[in-house]
C-alpha cells in the first residue's frame, strides 16, 4: 500500500517537474516579452507543485531521501511522468497545445484529488488547483486564438494535434500504483471540454488514434533521457554540490 502511494506521488511529481523543465526552455525565447513571462510563470508554478509532491514522497520514503535526491538522482526508467509532458516544445502552437491538453486533465484530476483519502495529497491539490485553473484559461484561450487565427496558425495547430494527440490516452489508463483516484472516470469529462474548446478553435478532434503509453511505468520516448541529462547534470558531475 505504502509503495503504491510513494509511486503515485512520484508520478505526480515527475509529471509536474518534466513539464516545468520543458516550459522553462522558452525562458528568453518567448514570441513576445509578455508571453515569455507567462510561460515562465507557468513553469515556476509547476516546479512548485513538483517540489510539494517530491517533499511528500521523500517523507514517505524515509531514510536518506530528499526532494533533491528524488529529482536529481533517479534514472530515466524510474521516472513516471506522462509521455505527453516530455514531448518537445516544437513551435509556440505545439507548446500551447501540450499545456492545454495537460492542464485540462490536471484540473479535473486535482478536483478529484482534493477529496481523496490522503490528507497531504488533498492539501497539495487544493493549493495547486488555482494555478492550474489559470494555466487552463491561458492555454485554452491560446488554442482558440491560434486555431481560429490565420491560415498558417490553423495549420500549425493541426500539426500539433497530429503530433501530440497520441499521448493523451495514457492519462486515463490507471497504473498499478494509481489507486487513489480513478483516472479513467475523468476521460468523458475531459473529452467533452476539449471538444468544446476545439470546436471554438475550429479544430477537429481526432478519432481512432493509436495511443502511446508507458510513461507511468517508466518506459519513455527517447526524449526524456536527453532532458534528464541536462536537468541532472550538475548533481551528477559534482555530487552533493550546493548553492
Amino acid at each position: 500500500m505504502k509503495s503504491n502511494l510513494i509511486d503515485y506521488t512520484l508520478h505526480l511529481a515527475d509529471t509536474a517537474l518534466i513539464l516545468s523543465q520543458r516550459n522553462s526552455e522558452w525562458c528568453g525565447h518567448g514570441p513576445i516579452l509578455e508571453q515569455d513571462i507567462a510561460i515562465t510563470n507557468i513553469s515556476l508554478d509547476l516546479l512548485g507543485q513538483a517540489r510539494n509532491f517530491y517533499q511528500y514522497a521523500a517523507t514517505l520514503t524515509g531514510g536518506e531521501a530528499t526532494e533533491d535526491s528524488l529529482a536529481y538522482l533517479r534514472t530515466e526508467r524510474e521516472f513516471k511522468n506522462l509521455l505527453l509532458v516530455e514531448q518537445e516544445n516544437g513551435d509556440w502552437g505545439q507548446t500551447i497545445l501540450r499545456q492545454y491538453l495537460f492542464s485540462q486533465f490536471q484540473y479535473l484530476m486535482f478536483e478529484k484529488l482534493q477529496q481523496c483519502s490522503d490528507e497531504q495529497l488533498a492539501a497539495i491539490a487544493s493549493k495547486s488547483i488555482k494555478e492550474t485553473a489559470y494555466h487552463l484559461r491561458w492555454s485554452s484561450e491560446w488554442v482558440c486564438r491560434l486555431g481560429d487565427g490565420t491560415k498558417e496558425s490553423h495549420e500549425r495547430m493541426l500539426l500539433a494535434i497530429e503530433e501530440l494527440w497520441r499521448y493523451t490516452g495514457e492519462m486515463f489508463e490507471s497504473a498499478v500504483y494509481e489507486t487513489i483516484i480513478n483516472v479513467a472516470s475523468l476521460k468523458e469529462d475531459w473529452m467533452q471540454r476539449v471538444s468544446a474548446v476545439f470546436s471554438e478553435a475550429t479544430l477537429p478532434v481526432p478519432e481512432n488514434v493509436f495511443m502511446q503509453t508507458g510513461g507511468k511505468k517508466g518506459i519513455h520516448t527517447e526524449l526524456l533521457g536527453f532532458m534528464l541529462t541536462e536537468l541532472q547534470y550538475v548533481q551528477r558531475t559534482y555530487p552533493g554540490a550546493e548553492w
Partner: peptide, 15 residues
C-alpha cells in the same frame, strides 16, 4: 505592455 486584445492584456498584466 503589448497584447492582441483586452483579455490577453489583462492576463499579461497579471503575469
Amino acid at each position: 505592455l503589448h497584447a492582441a486584445d483586452a483579455q490577453m492584456a489583462i492576463e499579461n498584466a497579471r503575469d
